[in-house]
Design a protein around this nucleic acid. Sequence first.
DNA 1: ATTTTGACGACGT
DNA 2: GACGTCGCCAAAA
Length: 110
Amino acid sequence: MDDKQGFFQRVYEVVMQIPYGRVTSYGAIAEYLGSKGSARMVGWAMNGSHHQPDNIPAHRVVNRNGLLTGKFHFGGKDVMKQLLESEGIYVEDNRITNFNEVFWHPQEPG
DNA sequence: ATTTTGACGACGT
DNA sequence: GACGTCGCCAAAA
């Protein structure tokens, strides 16, 4: 909708489409956007997600290992973990144990 | 305009 | 299989 000012807005739209109780990886989003190698840009976009008008479930985005790499950006140290657990996602030692079960891919039903 | 960065990923050792 | 390095690419300083 409206004009996409850049790569960031594109990322936000995809992240907001992540279903409840599901997670995805930076690379998956980047690949969906056509820039497979720009997984870092996705994370960077998340850095600005806080000042976005919409609620960006950035806690549902983890790296390809299912590791909560960006948990430090949520203010607290275990905020991200608790958010994921609140959605039925099992997290242990900053890592999603059932990552394979809750993994979600953009533009795919599930 | 150039340089630095950065919540990653894949490959090499 | 753990650790190290390179590569990608776009935005902020």
